[in-house]
Nucleic acid binder design. Structure first.
Lengths: 222, 222
DNA sequence: AATAAATATGAAAAAAATTTAATAATTGTT
DNA sequence: AACAATTATTAAATTTTTTTCATATTTATT
């Protein structure tokens, strides 16, 4: 994980950096707010730690200005102030979290993990069994590799995952996945199910889509 | 916003509920952990407030079990305990935030807003000007209508939005959008830029992609 | 076991998206 | 203004995806 530490107290910054390194993460240090903005324009980070009190620009100012410009990576503010007013202000200006000094490294790490995990997992993946569907990349991710699904197969799998445990008939799939009125003459659904099934089985070795004769299809995780 | 308050101290729960109502939000109260799980299986909420100390199941247990089952709405824990150990535990079990009692309603509301905003905005939309790119539906959304972009145009626009303000040359676009080594013989980039440009301009009436002769392309929001 | 209905499969046809190729227009420089 | 380099545009070629169609297999019922 790439972390930017914007903190003018060198002791704190260096101690954090060393601890991050011990956990296998790389951290850069910016000594004031301006430098932080500068670093961000040149490199990309997974998370920003901004000290509230810094020369040039305060952490809150950096946070505000980044968010205004559309910056959307997680930001955590570090501060010695502990009254509620500032917390509220920070969160309302687009910070993701807020850690009060003095803090333990464990807490910092836990909060970073929580925030990053959230950014990664929330509504960008649908997870099932030991696999997941990447909703942005339209990719099926397995421990052994990943595969990009064509659009209709992706939409179909997504719909199955959103409705696992429910029997879905062809009329409903046609309507919700293809946005087409169902006509008995087409076998779109069968064909796409077949293709999705073979890809799923090849990649996962499991049979997720069950046919309920006369009723529809069922996505099972058991 | 629909909020579930799982809290056995009725005074606190009712006071929160009343305050939420004043702000225009609807809240349900669950008096213990089991009841919370029960309510969640029946209705959908935008955010969960779980008291740590509750009969039947503790807030942390509820949180753990929901996350294990794949539940992915924001969860905030309320607690009287204030030592770091518990905070770390809570965040690592999938809670999104953690509020120490006694709290002010303003802080609760600010944290809910922060968490929900994050869930909504992070990586499901990239917003620019008065438009947004729906990263799930691969759709460009404008006040007047929306249009589904073909894959390469979508990837290109996404890359521009993630790097707005930076001049992107063809080599870099080829590498990061097409995942191809750049060869001077191809004009893939030019063609796709052209198509994306005309769609963008037709839909938004604005020119977002500027050519910097000899250097590359620049996405500007001015 | 025979039958009819439902589902699965393979391969061709059609449509859509991507890429290439040829040419036109624009830009910076002299 | 003329030139070379760069970028833009148009249209054709290719590839991929989607859909249809014909046929095979499976399932429930008798």
């Amino acid at each position: 994980m790439r972390i930017l530490i914007a903190e003018d107290e060198k002791q704190i910054a260096n101690s954090l950096k060393k601890n991050f390194a011990d956990e296998g993460h790389s951290a850069e240090i910016a000594e004031n707010g301006k430098e932080a903005i500068d670093q961000i324009s040149k490199n990309s980070f997974d998370v920003l730690l901004l000290d509230w009190r810094m020369p040039e620009l305060t952490g809150l100012e950096v946070c505000k200005s980044l968010r205004k410009a559309g910056y959307n990576k997680p930001i955590i503010l570090l501060t010695a102030l502990s009254d509620v007013k500032n917390k509220v202000e920070a969160l309302n200006y687009g910070a993701d979290d807020y850690i009060t000094k003095p803090f333990s490294f464990d807490e910092v790490m836990a909060r970073i993990n929580a925030v990053v995990r959230r950014y990664e997992s929330v509504s960008t993946f649908l997870e099932f069994d030991e696999f997941k569907l990447d909703l942005i990349a339209h990719t099926l991710v397995t421990p052994h590799g990943k595969i990009k699904l064509p659009e209709k197969e992706f939409e179909l799998l997504k719909y199955f995952l959103e409705n696992s445990g429910v029997i879905l008939n062809k009329e409903r799939l046609c309507r919700d996945v293809w946005e087409l009125p169902f006509t008995p003459s087409t076998n779109l659904v069968e064909v796409t199910i077949k293709n999705l099934r073979s890809k799923l089985e090849e990649l996962t070795g499991k049979k997720f889509i069950k046919t309920i004769y006369g009723e529809g299809y069922l996505f099972i995780l058991d």
